[in-house]
């Protein structure tokens, strides 16, 4: 009898626990769905606007689903300026700059993580100090430099600097990641006869893949969307990037063809979305393991 009561108690407790877990789960899902919708709303609005006629863009109350769906914004928007050329330029700049950033930042970070000297701390502080300098301050001196070596109106100023360090934040992120890798691995490789560079590319690089992918994703997003640097260094229409091209939808007085702007912006954001979806597992892992939080 006693045993029976005990079993009943246990069953009730189990049922209550299960019910409370289910309720918690429902609340979690509702909350997450609401938040997801809130965050997705601007994107949904962008899609809706891209499919609207100009006269429907500003109707009150706003309509998420257009009464007349038009695809003309995509074709007319794409023809509004040379977006095919802009896309190609953006691809070239992004691909090369990202490769430069990832490899050069990894080399510098490896140095800071594994080679100690009396000046290491000081040098690393200087590297981090460059993060405090706003880009605007560097614009005129770097413009003069690139102008003197004849690089204005070429893609070089947007690509080549990436091969010289890759940016303080990326160095910091990778250095943190390198530091999590046991030094015993290096020592074992040294015993096997590996030199520093072999240790770097045969042992360390494969181990920090998630961090490298994180750097790559951040770098892609930066270079793909960068407006200021292309604006400063590029002159000719055939060299422009997408970020500049999208601004042409706005005239001198701020009025814009918003439906076409949204349509072309939607096309240009798709590669980034796909990339993020593919790389998000590594991206999150890289951010978490390096101890850097947003």
């Amino acid at each position: 009898m006693k045993e029976h009561v005990e079993i009943q108690k246990q069953t009730t407790k189990f049922r209550n626990k299960k019910t409370s877990e289910t309720i918690n789960q429902i609340i979690n899902y509702v909350l997450l769905t609401v938040l997801a919708l809130a965050f997705a709303f601007p994107f949904l609005w962008m899609i809706a606007t891209a499919l609207k006629t100009p006269s429907e863009v500003y109707t009150i109350p706003p309509k998420l689903i257009p009464s007349t769906i038009t695809w003309d914004n995509f074709t007319e928007g794409w023809q509004y300026a040379d977006f095919t050329r802009y896309t190609w330029n953006t691809l070239v700049v992004t691909t090369l700059a990202v490769l430069g950033t990832v490899f050069s930042a990894a080399i510098v970070a490896y140095g800071f993580a594994r080679f100690n000297s009396r000046l290491s701390g000081f040098l690393f502080a200087i590297v981090l100090g460059t993060m405090m300098l706003p880009n605007q301050i560097l614009l005129i001196p770097t413009y003069i430099l690139f102008s003197k070596i004849g690089w204005i109106d070429t893609l070089k100023p947007l690509i080549v600097p990436s091969f010289f360090g890759g940016g303080a934040f990326n160095i910091f992120l990778l250095r943190q990641f390198f530091k999590t890798i046991p030094k015993e691995l290096d020592q074992a490789a040294i015993i096997d006869g590996a030199n520093s560079f072999q240790i770097f590319y045969k042992i360390m690089l494969p181990a920090v893949r998630p961090a490298m992918i994180t750097v790559a994703v951040l770098s892609i997003a930066f270079h793909w969307n960068d407006f200021l640097n292309p604006l400063i260094y590029l002159n000719s229409d055939h060299n422009f990037t997408l970020a500049i091209g999208l601004q042409f939808f706005q005239n001198s007085y701020g009025s814009s063809q918003i439906q076409m702007l949204m349509a072309v912006a939607l096309i240009t954001v798709i590669p980034l979305l796909i990339l993020f979806l593919i790389g998000q597992r590594y991206f999150v892992q890289g951010i978490t393991m390096s101890g850097i939080k947003g």
């Binding site: 605007q136 614009l139 005129i140 413009y143 003069i144 102008s147 003197k148 407006f227 200021l228 604006l231 400063i232 002159n235 000719s236 229409d237 500049i244 601004q247 042409f248 706005q250 005239n251 001198s252 007085y253 701020g254």
Partner: peptide, 18 residues
């Protein structure tokens, strides 16, 4: 050199300085 209306001043400042 035809640019979007935004931020033209920054480019011009840099070009004049150079």
């Amino acid at each position: 050199i035809w640019l979007p209306a935004d931020s033209v001043d920054q480019k011009l400042d840099a070009a004049l300085a150079a």
